[in-house]
């Protein structure tokens, strides 16, 4: 899942950089196998993140103009936090992980994971399912989170702030 997201993100970024880029050029620039590229482009089209238009010789790809609703803006604001972003990526691939499993997968201390999980639960982005003493977490709307992860681009300021937080907060930062 993480790998697929990364490939889709690369494709999305490439189309953003070169609007109207055609299939072969995308293939050449990204070095993605044809079948794979087709699959990801279809996915992005289906999710309305890109549009394809036929000129006489080529199929050309463009980004869809997309305005974010309130819920999507909330999710984006959490994606800007490195810890939350890594947690959401893990939960997309493996729903119903608990705190300990997430801490191992993300490489952050359990208390940091716990803190981020609380924030995500409060915001209604993930939900907690308690069985006995163990809480397991799932994303409320996985398709939207996956789409926004593709669109999300870390700014230089995000990198600085994330770096600062990791430097002072996290024992095993990733």
């Amino acid at each position: 899942m993480e790998f697929e997201l990364e490939t889709r993100k690369r494709i999305y970024e490439q189309i953003k950089k070169s609007p109207g880029i055609h299939f072969r050029e995308l293939e050449r620039r990204l070095q993605v196998v044809v079948g794979n590229l087709q699959y990801h482009l279809q996915y992005l089209e289906k999710k309305n993140l890109i549009t394809a238009s036929n000129d006489e010789d080529y199929v050309r790809y463009f980004l869809t103009d997309r305005s974010l609703n309130e819920n999507e803006r909330k999710i984006i604001s959490f994606l800007r936090r490195s810890g939350c972003r890594h947690i959401l990526i893990q939960l997309l691939s493996n729903p119903k992980l608990n705190n300990k499993e997430l801490a191992q997968a993300v490489g952050l201390s359990p208390s940091t994971i716990s803190w981020n999980l609380n924030k995500l639960v409060e915001a209604g982005i993930i939900e907690r399912e308690k069985t006995g003493r163990i809480s397991r977490f799932t994303i409320v709307d996985p398709p939207t989170v996956a789409e926004l992860l593709i669109c999300y681009k870390e700014s230089f300021l995000d990198t600085l702030v994330d770096g600062f937080i990791e430097m002072w907060e996290f024992k095993n930062s990733k």
């Binding site: 600085l160 702030v161 937080i165 002072w168 907060e169």
Partner: peptide
Amino acid sequence: ISFLAYLRERRKK
């Protein structure tokens, strides 16, 4: 930078 980090995380530290 550190104040932005605080605004984002709301941690006393």
